[in-house]
Design a protein around this nucleic acid. Structure first.
Lengths: 140, 140
DNA sequence: CAGAATCCCTTTTGATACTG
DNA sequence: CAGTATCAAAAGGGATTCTG
């Protein structure tokens, strides 16, 4: 792993100072973008949902349930709602009988998946934990 | 937001196919790097801990507790252990009386914080949710 | 088919007190 | 100071059943 450069360090410090400087620690938890947004899209199930939707352009409820192995009805529908509300995915309902509902990534969601994949790649190359026991981790 | 290019899409598909192609869905949840690693470092509290350690080069237990407002003794010590085990932070104990313990980011941890900040920046510029109600989000 | 409702159980917290 | 121990409270998740 390459050591972080002096320059980078100064840059980061500047960024953080700019951000932290205006907030007191009591409000930080409430107003933290990463915290709010990431926690909505990076839990165990949501990651898998997003990845599968990245793999298949369009999926229906029960298909997702099949691929995201082990997820329950309840949690799936809950996560889908959050992901839709936050703009990661799109839901289209067709008024047939029985009803058909299709889900797909939005542009934003697709870009987020890109970033997840990049992050994964980086993790595989840099995480001490993974480097120590690579066999414990799959390809993804 | 810019639309994802046709080329990017093909690239992503290739990447995903390569990854998914060799795994069946039953094992995916167990072997998913993003899932395992992210969930350990992107929960509500860990993010804040890492960010504060990005801001201050070295912090002691009770200092972190003060900055990460609202975290309990128990959860803090638990998260610190995980973050240390996964290589994000480093713990140094000085055998004084009373004991002194200092925490700091590792190189890997520092780079991860960099990425969190980048991701935050990107979220602020692209997340539909944030763009719709920017006032609900702080500077970070 | 897509999900809502229900019930039950496990896991995670938070508060407080305690110790080397 | 830097945690651990303990217990009560709360949140979260799973399995099943039900409905438009």
């Amino acid at each position: 792993m390459e050591t972080i450069s002096e320059n980078q360090l100064v840059e980061r410090q500047k960024k953080l100072e700019k951000m932290f400087g205006h907030l007191d620690r009591k409000n930080l938890p409430e107003l933290c973008t990463v915290r709010d947004v990431m926690s909505a899209s990076s839990d165990q199930w949501s990651i898998l949902i997003l990845l599968w939707l990245g793999y298949f352009p369009v999926l229906r409820f029960n298909k997702i349930k099949k691929y995201v192995y082990g997820i329950s009805n309840k949690v799936l529908s809950q996560r889908l709602k959050v992901l839709e509300a936050d703009g990661y995915i799109e839901r289209k309902a067709y008024p047939e009988v029985p009803i058909r509902v299709e889900y797909n990534l939005t542009d934003f969601g697709a870009q987020y998946v890109e970033r997840l994949l990049e992050l994964t790649q980086w993790m595989r190359e840099n995480s001490p934990k993974i480097l120590k026991h690579p066999e414990k981790y799959g390809l993804l």
